[in-house]
């Protein structure tokens, strides 16, 4: 393809090709300080392309392709090329990765152990992870967390955090502006701005962390904690995994071990401060 770059996020190495320079340039800025690995071939391919040659210039719209494609996925305007790249990378991992059990969950680590937060979009799992990442925790990932079936450890997938809507202002007030990507307004998911994880989190991205706490956050209601049983946690996590069925017994073993060894809670919280307080409270109990 005309423009391309390669990026390693956690265990996955991507090559991203594009018909336009802009999305590649934006990725190279966001991922400039990620460890390079020039002799390693990519595991996954993402393609950003124009459906017809003239659409590279005329109302340019970015189609997302790669090793795996979603038929009928709508293209995005070129101004949202970075979002298209992010969606393409997520898609390849979600559909193609087989080494680990992939959970749609954010994660953060402290002292070699991790808290996993699984929830639908809007649950605040991404914002909570980003906030933890600025308050003494190592951010492991805001979207996917991988479980190694052999060891049961959680592995980080610390892509640039995708901040949405209110979370943008909340984080912008706390971090150096140099760590923020361009503001993408009016995307199908609202306003989006990417946050580069702290250098320590990127440097430690290959370090596994044993899961110690499993949370299912829900943003909006009064602060509350609800204990979740092993069976229910198991069901919720199979639903939060994109490759559970493809892994066979390895996935089953990883998930039964996870829900048996790690306490699980549903938490609801009215604002980020309350959410963080709940995480810290439950963490203190879990690791004591």
């Amino acid at each position: 393809m005309r423009h391309s770059t390669r990026i390693t996020v956690g265990p996955v190495r991507f090559r991203i090709g594009s018909d336009w320079r802009a999305p590649i340039a934006a990725l190279e800025t966001l991922y400039a300080d990620y460890p390079g690995d020039p002799v390693r071939p990519a595991d996954a391919t993402v393609r950003l392309f124009a459906a017809r040659p003239w659409r590279r210039w005329l109302r340019p719209s970015v189609h997302i392709g790669g090793d795996f494609i979603v038929p009928d996925a709508l293209p995005l305007p070129l101004s949202m090329g970075l979002l298209a790249a992010e969606m393409g990378m997520n898609l390849q991992v979600a559909l193609g990765w087989r080494r680990h059990l992939l959970l749609h969950a954010s994660a953060a680590a402290r002292d070699g152990r991790s808290v996993l937060m699984s929830g639908i979009s809007g649950s605040g799992k991404s914002t909570l992870a980003a906030l933890l990442g600025e308050s003494g925790w190592r951010l492991m990932g805001d979207e996917f967390t991988m479980i190694d079936p052999g060891s049961g450890d959680a592995l980080a997938f610390p892509r640039a955090v995708s901040l949405k809507n209110e979370a943008i202002g909340e984080m912008a007030a706390r971090v150096d502006a140099a760590r923020l990507g361009p503001l993408l307004s009016g995307t199908p998911k609202g306003d989006i701005q990417h946050l580069i994880p702290r250098p320590e989190a990127v440097a430690a991205m290959h370090e596994p962390a044993r899961p110690a706490l499993l949370l299912f956050p829900r943003f909006g209601d009064a602060a509350a904690i609800e204990r979740i049983g092993e069976g229910e946690a198991f069901v919720r996590l199979t639903e939060a995994s994109t490759n559970y069925t493809a892994l066979g017994e390895a996935g089953f073993g990883a998930l039964t071990r996870l829900v048996r060894t790690v306490p699980a809670f549903g938490i609801s919280y009215p604002d980020s401060a309350a959410g963080l307080a709940l995480v810290e409270e439950l963490w203190a109990e879990a690791v004591s």
């Binding site: 049983g229 092993e230 069976g231 198991f234 069901v235 199979t238 069925t245 066979g248 017994e249 089953f252 039964t256 829900v259 048996r260």
Partner: peptide, 22 residues
């Protein structure tokens, strides 16, 4: 079959089909 009780439910993994039954 690999049978793993998980609290109130039992997860059964069928090695022939690779399906999980709760």
């Amino acid at each position: 079959l690999r049978v793993e009780p998980l609290g109130e439910v039992t997860a059964i993994f069928d090695r022939r089909s690779t399906q999980t039954h709760l």
